[in-house]
Amino acid sequence: MENKIVFITGATSGIGKASAIALANLGYDIIATGRRKDRLENLKDELPSGTKLQILCFDVRDQKAVKSAIGSLPEQWQKIDVLINNAGNAHGLDPIQSGSLEDWDAMMDINVKGLLYVSKEIMTGMVNRQAGTIVNIGSIAGKEVYPNGNVYCASKHAVDAITKGMRIDLNPYGIRVIAVHPGMVETEFSLVRFKGDAARSKTVYQGLQPLTAEDVADTIAFAVSRPPHVVLADIVILPTAQASATILKKTN
């Protein structure tokens, strides 16, 4: 019996990378995608021995590159059972009146349009086979709006709405659609948001125990490995110290 295939965007770090490892441990073959080819190639060393790995290097913002990369998959890799739309970023934390147009474009292009571009290429095969699972990684920012979160929150609200629309439109084809909305997770997220300012990024997580990428990956692995008639449609996962986007229990 052939292993199932999972396609993961943003697999070079954080939740995407941890999900590749978690699902490889469940016996999945992995298609890992991202912009940093060296990291994708190094992923092989962190997967269980014998795991089949296919890497694709592209930017989800580039629709032509997405189409070309996915279209280049060898025949044995084309039957994708699980899609994990993980690629996404926050850029800046500014009030809307002083926000950067470049940051706004990056968030909408990656978090929303990139998710759509990748899904478009993979959904067709799932519809034809009348089987498959799609996991969209949202955020607590897709459930609430917080100060200075404006456009990032808008992008993740869009992910939430797209996920609900997918679930309705793909229902006739037996395709499961799952949303995972993490709260505070210590990854490269804040480092990207604060333009590489490591000191500022570190303060975000001080005084509490945030989620790890592995915590979220464990939840994703559990959700996709449920029996085919079970869908964990909408999952919000927070660290115990977090009650909402803005309410945190810190020790200092």
Rank of each mutant, 00 (worst) to 15 (best):
G138K: 05
F194N: 09
Q130T: 14
K249M: 14
E144P: 04
A243G: 07
M126E: 05
K249A: 14
N42M: 14
L115R: 01
R129V: 10
T124M: 13
I30P: 00
P74S: 10
Y152L: 04
Q206V: 08
R193V: 01
L232A: 06
D29G: 05
L208R: 09
L191E: 08
V66L: 02
V145H: 09
D215F: 07
I8C: 01
L115W: 03
I55H: 06
G92W: 00
A69S: 13
T12A: 07
Y28C: 04
A179C: 10
T124R: 15
F58G: 00
G88I: 02
A154L: 14
N252V: 15
G88N: 01
L40E: 02
E102T: 13
V151L: 13
A106G: 04
R35V: 06
Y117G: 00
E46S: 12
L101R: 10
V159W: 05
Y205M: 03
M108W: 12
A158Y: 09
P228C: 08
Q76I: 07
S190G: 06
N42A: 15
S225A: 15
Y173C: 05
V66R: 00
M107A: 07
V192L: 13
S49D: 11
G88K: 02
V151C: 04
I30R: 00
P182L: 08
V177K: 02
H181S: 11
N111R: 02
N150A: 15
V66M: 04
A243K: 14
F194I: 05
V118S: 00
L191N: 09
I247C: 12
K120G: 04
A24G: 08
G196T: 07
P147S: 07
S119P: 03
I247W: 14
F194K: 06
E144M: 11
L101Q: 07
V66C: 08
Q54M: 13
L238M: 15
N128W: 12
V180C: 06
D62F: 03
V216F: 08
P210M: 08
N111I: 04
H91Y: 11
H181G: 03
T219D: 03
S49K: 14
P210D: 07
I55F: 06
S72P: 01
D45Q: 13
D169W: 14
V192G: 03
G92E: 01
I137E: 00
H91Q: 11
T133L: 10
Y205K: 10
K164Q: 15
M1G: 10
S49P: 03
A213F: 08
A243T: 14
K202H: 14
A154G: 12
T187W: 12
F194V: 10
D29H: 10
N3H: 13
I15H: 02
V118G: 00
F222W: 15
V145T: 13
H157P: 04
I31V: 13
A198C: 09
V151I: 15
